[in-house]
Simulated assay, not measured.
Amino acid sequence: MSCILLLMLQVPGIASASSIFGHQNTTVPKGQTVDDVYVVGGDVDVLGQVNGIVVVINGNLHIGSSAKINGVVVVIGGELNQDPGAVLVDDLFDISLDNATQNSLLLGGGIVAGLWVVQFAGSLLIVLLPVMIWILGKKKIASFTEKFQNAPLGRLLSTGFLTGSAITALCILLLVTIIGIPVLVIVLIIALFAVALGTTVLSYRIGHMVKWSEQRSEWLKVFCGAALIAAFSNIPIIGWILYFVIALLALGICTLWIAGKLKRKA
C-alpha cells in the first residue's frame, strides 16, 4: 500500500475536476473538459478543453494541438509553448520574470514604497508640528492664534500669495550664485517655520469649528484641525491644491504678524 501511494505522488496530476488548483505538474488529457486551471509551482500540459481561465505561476505551460481554451491564459515566471492547431479564444499573457523584469519590478516597487513613506512622513509632520508648536509655545502661541482667529481668509490668502511670490523670486536669484546658496537654505528654513506657525493657527481655527472638540483642551483642537488638514491633503491633486492654499494662508498670517510688529516699533 505504501508503494502505491509513493507512485501516486510521483505521477503528474491528471485533470479530473471542474476546476483545478494544483501545486504540481498537471495534465488536461485529450477529450476532457474542465472549467478553470490554476497551478502554482508546477508545469501544465493542456491537451483537452478548458472553458475558463488558465493561470500558471512559476511553471511552464504546454498547449497541445488538440487543446481548446475558451478563457484567458496567464503564465507568470515560466515558458509558454503552443503547438500548431491549438485554439485560443481569449487573450494570452506571458509575464517573464527574468533579471530585467525583476529589476523593473523592484525599482517600481521601491519608488512606490518610497513615495508612500514620504507621504506618510509628511502627514505626520502636518499633524505633529502644529501640536508641538502649540504645547511648547503655550501662552505666546495662544495669544498669536487668538489674534488671527477671525482674520478674513481673503486678506490672508492675498498676503500669502504676495509673500510666496517674493520668496520664490528671492530663491531663484540666490540659486544663480554659489555664494547665495547658504542664504537660500536659511530663507527656506524661515519660510517652512512660518508655514508651520501659520498652520498651527489654521489648525486651531478648523478644530474649534468641530463640535467634538468644543469641551476639549486647546491642544486637542489643534490636533483635530491638523488631522483634518492632513487627511484632505492626501487626496490626489485636490489635496495638493488644498495644502498649497493652506501654505499661502499660513504665510499670510506670519506676514501680517511681522508687519504688525514692525508697525508698532515704528
Rank of each mutant, 00 (worst) to 15 (best):
I111W: 14
P12Y: 08
Y38P: 06
I126S: 09
G48H: 12
V118L: 08
S213L: 15
G64R: 10
E146N: 11
T27M: 02
V54S: 02
F244R: 10
A142L: 05
A100Y: 04
D35P: 00
L249N: 03
S66P: 13
N60S: 10
G42C: 08
E218S: 15
V195D: 00
A166D: 06
A227T: 14
G207Q: 06
G71P: 01
I258D: 02
L251Y: 02
G78K: 01
P152W: 06
V56G: 01
G59M: 14
K30D: 09
G48F: 13
L136I: 06
G198T: 07
V245N: 06
I253C: 04
Q215W: 08
G77N: 08
A113N: 11
E146C: 03
L228A: 12
G52N: 11
V89M: 00
A67Y: 00
I133V: 14
I4R: 06
I14H: 00
A231T: 14
L174T: 06
H23F: 11
E218G: 12
Y38F: 15
Y204G: 10
W257L: 07
V37M: 03
T168E: 01
G154H: 05
F193V: 09
L61P: 12
T159C: 04
S217K: 14
A67R: 02
A17L: 07
S165N: 05
L153K: 01
A259T: 00
Q49Y: 08
N150F: 08
I241R: 05
V210K: 00
D45A: 12
I69Y: 00
F232H: 09
W116M: 12
